[in-house]
Design a protein around this nucleic acid. Structure first.
Length: 457
RNA sequence: GGCUCGGUGGCAGAGUGGUAAUGCAGCGGAUUGCAAAUCCGUCAACGCCGGUUCGAUUCCGACCCGAGCCUCCA
């Protein structure tokens, strides 16, 4: 049985995934607001849903994966003002850097990457439809969604309007009929970017782009909509309201939300000064190490990010690559992913920790087996790694991907040759001295019956 | 205050109505000139209190602790 189970965060229930149309899967993930560098927390949904994308591609003939770029937003406007430039300069720079960083994490490019600024027309259409249908109203240059017009507003996040009012901590704008009403369109001052509209020159509210772009690019309803847990409210709740009230469709089959990345036990936030960008982490760790670390906990559980996590992720990958390197004489064969225990683990609501556990078993099998079993183990390890988006490097090259190179390969080879001679002459003191020297430079020596090899630690 | 989620061995982290994967660390062994790597073996856990049940870590309730959201933060 190759059934995929997923947890719907709307119901909290894990169930078999049944697509609207099995010949064409559609899924959408909220992408970045491009006003600064992506941090490791931004990378978690990217890696998680990239893994889901890989699973879906193995199961279905056609998968359209859309991840938007939010390139109009007040934070972008602020960033542009601070730098004395226009927003497109800011958004182009950070869109490019985002793509580079995510590529370094082995995240496949999405099928579609719609940009908000290129879909303003569709957003205005939707705003207009919502007004027409009595779900939105104009007030002081704004267009606001009327939350009281939707009977089950709050169903996604499990809230009701009364509860929200009870907990309201934010001053309510005077032009809102109900404190819960949210902005579809808002006016822009002359020094702010804006688009002409029937409501005056302005710009879209945050939630509007996703509803409009999903409808325009993916159609009436999509199978899966993903994002970070914090997006459930208000963003996805409001998206759902816009789409369900503006169009006559079911909108989303399954909502999926990943938990946060914490930094050493506390929330990552600018005020705490503990934000780690992907870019700075890539100076010290391979992108694959970051990806592996992000997959080491189940996507619905919080992930505590720390140096310990990263060094442990690197050690584990090292052991897998070591097993592959030592089996360099074996030619891997095509291994159907459907039968892979790693893949099967992923079919169970993307259980990446269980999938990694299977990888350990395969690596162990590769280390101890011989003959046909060895071929099978290597093939299965590579296929399992591919399912998770890892282990695609050349095993020898993997150990060269270290940031800290104090000795050149030539120097190491020379010292190693000298050590081999010393060993042959039973001059173990000299041999050990050379090994110590190499060890201190971050080079590990491994002796075997067939000779000595080295790798960077 | 409202809502949501979670508390598993030294650490990380799955999972289950019949006493619980996997990895790291530890301990013992094989191998090695000695190591490293690898392999074999091994120690060790289900927050607290009730309830349901033949039986609960797993279901229900209370409690304690932690995290998140509550209008633009992945």
């Amino acid at each position: 049985m190759t059934e995929l189970f997923l947890t719907n965060s709307e119901s909290g229930v894990k169930a078999v995934f049944t697509p609207v149309d099995a010949t064409h899967i559609k899924f959408y993930v909220c992408g970045p607001t491009v006003y600064n560098l992506a941090h490791i927390g931004n990378a978690r949904p990217v890696v998680v849903f990239d893994t889901l994308f890989r699973v879906l591609r193995s199961l279905y003939p056609k998968v359209t994966y859309a991840r938007n770029i939010t390139d109009i937003d007040d934070r972008i406007i602020t960033a542009a003002k601070e730098r004395g430039t226009d927003i497109s300069t800011v958004t182009q720079e950070f869109t490019g850097k985002f793509r580079e960083d995510m590529c370094a994490l082995n995240a496949l490019p999405p099928t579609l990457e719609p940009q908000a600024t290129e879909n303003v027309g569709a957003m205005l259409d939707l705003a207009h439809r919502l007004i027409d249908r009595g779900h939105a109203y104009e007030a002081e240059g704004h267009v606001l969604f009327d939350v009281t017009s939707m009977p089950d507003y709050g169903a996604l996040s499990g809230r009701n309007l009364d509860d929200m009012l009870a907990g309201a901590r934010v001053e309510v704008a005077s032009y809102k009929r109900h404190p819960g009403d949210f902005v579809l369109w808002k006016p822009s001052s002359d020094d702010e970017p804006g688009w002409e509209s029937p409501y005056g020159r302005g710009r879209p509210g945050w939630h509007l782009e996703c509803s409009a772009m999903i409808h325009d690019h993916l159609g009436d309803n999509i199978d899966i909509h993903g994002g970070g847990r914090d997006l459930i409210f208000p963003h996805h709740e409001n998206e759902r309201a816009q789409s369900c009230c503006g169009y006559d469709d079911d909108f989303v089959g399954i909502w999926m939300h990943n938990a946060y990345v914490d930094m050493n036990g506390e929330k990552m936030s600018k005020s705490l000064g503990n934000v780690k960008t992907v870019r700075e982490l890539l100076d010290h760790y391979a992108g694959e190490t970051l990806r592996f670390a992000l997959l080491s906990a189940h996507y619905r559980s919080p992930l505590n990010f720390s140096e310990q996590l990263l060094s442990s992720a690197q050690s584990t990958l090292d052991s897998f690559y070591l097993a592959l390197r030592n089996a360099g004489d074996v030619a891997a064969q095509a291994s159907p992913v459907e039968t892979s225990p790693v893949f099967r683990a992923l079919l169970d609501d993307l259980n990446s920790p269980a999938a990694i556990a299977e990888l350990h078993q395969l690596a162990k099998a590769l280390n101890k087996s011989g003959g046909d079993a060895r071929v099978a183990a290597k093939s299965a390890l590579l296929a399992g790694g591919a399912a998770l988006g890892i282990l695609s490097n050349d095993p020898v090259a993997w150990f060269e991907l270290r940031g800290t190179e104090t000795l050149s390969a030539d120097t190491i080879e020379t010292l190693l040759t000298e050590r081999t001679s010393a060993k042959a002459a039973k001059d173990f003191a000299r041999a050990d001295a050379i090994r110590d020297e190499l060890n201190n430079s971050g080079v590990v020596i491994e002796d075997s019956a067939s000779g000595s090899t080295w790798r960077r630690a």
